[in-house]
Every structure is written in C-alpha cells, then in structure tokens.
Design a protein around this nucleic acid. Structure first.
Lengths: 218, 218
DNA sequence: CTTGACATAGAACGCTTGTTCACTTATCAT
DNA sequence: ATGATAAGTGAACAAGCGTTCTATGTCAAG
C-alpha cells in the first residue's frame, strides 16, 4: 500500500520532519534542500523536493516557492516566538506599602523577568509582574511567592481584580473592585468566596493596576 | 560624532532591526540582504552588509557567514520557540471524583490546550492540565476556573503539592503531601496557612500527579 | 588644505539553492 | 508476466544571494 493512499508518513519523511525540527532548534533559520538532504540522509535534492511536496500536502509544513530556506513547519508543531512575552518583575507587593508600578527608566532587567504565553495575558502593553510577599493577600487566594501579572491602567471595569492602595489604612490589597452607584464608594470583594466584601471611600483608594493572571510555581 | 564612537544606533540601523523583526513575525524565515534593502529602504546591498556588520558588533544579531538568510536576532529579543510548551487540558478536577489523568490515546486536542513558558514547568514530559470546578480546592488557594498544571508521576517528594484521591471519602484534593515516619500515614497540608493539616491512611490515598504550576486568568 | 576615518552607491563575481527533467528501479494488483 | 504507479537518481539550469571591489562623498582634526 502506498503512502499516498494511507496518509501515513514514510520513514524518510519522518526523518526529514525531525531533522528540520532539530535544525530549527540549533540554528534559527530553516535548512536548505541540500542541508536536509545531508542531514536526513536523503540521496538527492530531487527526492527531498519530492518528500517536501508530500509533507506539504499532509499539511505538516508550508513552503515559500522558489525562496531559499522557504520551509516552515506548521504552527501547531512550532509555536511562534511572538506567542511569548517577557514580563519584568518590578518588585514585591506588601500589604503595608503601595504596590510597585513599573519605573519606565529602569527597564528590562533580564534577570528579573518572567516568560509567559501571550494567550494568557493578551496584549503585552503595560504588563509588569509582582511577587507576593507574606500571606497578606490570602483572601485573594494568593500566597507568599506567587507571581501576579499586572497591567498598568488608570481605568478599570466593574468586577476587575485590581491592586488597590488604601491611603487611610496605608495598605495595598488585591480585590475585585466595583464602583457603587454614587461613585463615591468602592466595593472590594475578596476572591475567596467564603469571605465578605467590604467598602471604602473612593477618595482613599488608588487603583494601581489590574491583575491579568496569577501564577504559582510549586 | 560617528556611530562607532557613540555606541548608538543610527536611524537606518534601527529601521533594519525593526524590519527584520516584523519580517520574522510575518514569515518564519529571516529576510535576505536584498529583502532588507527594499524593506528598510537602504540604497544598496553593500550598505545593508555594512550596517549588519555594525549591528553584529553591537551584539544585536548573529550572522551565519555566506549562508542565505543567515541573519538571526539575538535571543533576548526573540524568544526561542522551544521555550513554549503546549499542555493538554484533560478535564476538570471535582472533589467528588478522582482527578482525571491523561489518556494516552486521546492526544493533543488542539482546542483544549494551554500554552505556557517552559521556564515555569521545566521538562514537558508527563505534563497535563486540569481545570478546577467549584470552590472545593479553596484550601489549596485554588478557585473555580483556575488551571492546574500537573505532572504525571508515581513517586513524589515530601512536601510536594499533589493531587490525591482519598478512596474512603471518595474525594480528590490538592494538598502538600508528607509521608509520616511509619510510612502508613500521610499528612495532608492545605496550602492556606490558616488551615490545619490532617492525616489519612496511606492505603486510602492515591497520588495522581504533582502540581507544577497554578494559573488563574482574571 | 590635506588627510584619514566613516558613510554611500553601484556593479560584478561566484557560490548557493530551488526546480526540473530524463531516466532507472521497486512495488503490486491484475 | 505485465503494465501502471510510486520511489529514487543524478545532473544541469537559472535565479537567488552574500560578498567584495572600486569610485565617490562627507566631515572633523591636524
């Protein structure tokens, strides 16, 4: 039974696929036909071309015609680099201080950066990360050492989980925030469903950013 | 003052850098010298070559000599695709049932996959994800809708956060697990520091996997 | 003004590389 | 056996592509 009939990959085709993948890991450029030929142990360039056509039909790769190194593995197998975003960890969030916000001058300190998939946070703009210190955020279900990915923003929607600094208590906290009808009062609702919301005067609350994602390594 | 003295990038050099980056987003192959020439509005190929050398000295890119499309932006600017791992979401964890574990047959359902940075979880082997349903994991500081990244493993270290199914209570739970000295008893410690640990007979506990990471989108 | 380092332009050279074509060999149902 | 289809070979061609060379322009320092 032939390969075309079964839809299965022949053994040289698997070799080619695997070679391209490894090549992409080492270099950051796809291989040429002749590099594939040598690397995957194919006997001639025309055979490589032949197999590549089959792999293209099987939707495992895309080709740019007549362009050198125009071999691109399908997205599912090779996630696109732009799907990662590097978020700077700008400090720790402690109850007794305002939550840090990014200092535009002291930019990407590569050491203190967390990589996350863009699909978790959307747009990379205004993102920064905080490390939670102590268990003061426990009613937001966030514990010591957790990483909170924030987005700097002046305006928030009702129900957004946000970092709020309460000037009268000298305390920052992570809560779901709702503006009450009169606009002069904020309802702060803990993430823990077993705890009760409480209310603060809007003039004593500074919204510092909204929480996009919480990450706990264990 | 010349560019070499200042260490600054000249305006055409910034154009080139930006063009390569955008080109890489659209195609998955680096551009050729002549494509850079047109795309970044440089007047000649030799000028492109000239600028590329400067950018290479500035450590913003690497070049493979005499290889077509041998222009690679430095790692810091372009995260490597293999730094992302796709984890299948194999089900929901509910208190009244054993936590699902991956079915080797029903593999990568692309729809139910979460992308995370490898730096958060290490090795991709044995990884799967569970969505938490209800607030029964609240004492692990995990709420409805959170995603738990697990690694299938038969053996765990003392203090690992793990999914445990308690056969006598017909209940699964996420707790830090410690084997007591006699080995016949397990200490299960809630992640919430305000709650007390409890103990179960080791024969009535099935370790289903260990928690690598918890993710909450908000 | 001269000099020398830097920046620019255009063209030509020669290796690289994808494609094609004519041909051979293997596989297999009839 | 046989003919059709798939798999494989090798060489040659043409376009792609990086590099280099020469000539020219700019400009600050001596």
């Amino acid at each position: 039974m032939s390969q075309a009939e079964t839809g299965q990959l022949t053994e040289p085709q698997q070799r080619i696929l695997s070679f391209i993948s490894h090549y992409l890991d080492e270099h950051d450029v796809p291989p040429t036909i002749r590099e594939i030929q040598k690397g995957a142990g194919i006997s001639s360039t025309s055979m490589v071309s032949y197999h590549l056509k089959a792999l293209e039909r099987a939707n495992l790769l895309n080709r740019y015609e007549r362009r050198s190194r125009g071999v691109v593995l399908t997205h599912a197998h090779r996630p696109n680099p732009r799907d990662i975003v590097s978020v700077p960890i700008v400090g720790r969030i402690v109850a007794s201080e305002p939550a840090p916000t990014p200092d535009p001058d002291a930019l990407a300190d590569v050491e203190n950066t967390i990589q996350i998939a863009r699909s978790l946070v959307g747009n990379a703009e205004g993102l920064y990360a905080l490390e939670v210190q102590g268990d003061s955020m426990i009613d937001a279900l966030i514990n010591d050492g957790d990483i909170v990915i924030m987005r700097r923003t002046d305006e928030i929607q009702n129900g957004d989980l946000a970092a709020v600094f309460l000037t009268d208590r000298n305390e920052s906290t992570l809560k779901r925030v709702y503006r009450e009808k009169d606009g002069k009062r904020l309802k702060l609702k803990p993430e823990n469903p077993h705890m009760k919301p409480f209310y603060v005067d809007a003039r004593h609350a500074m919204i510092q950013g909204k929480v996009m994602c919480v990450i706990r390594r264990t």
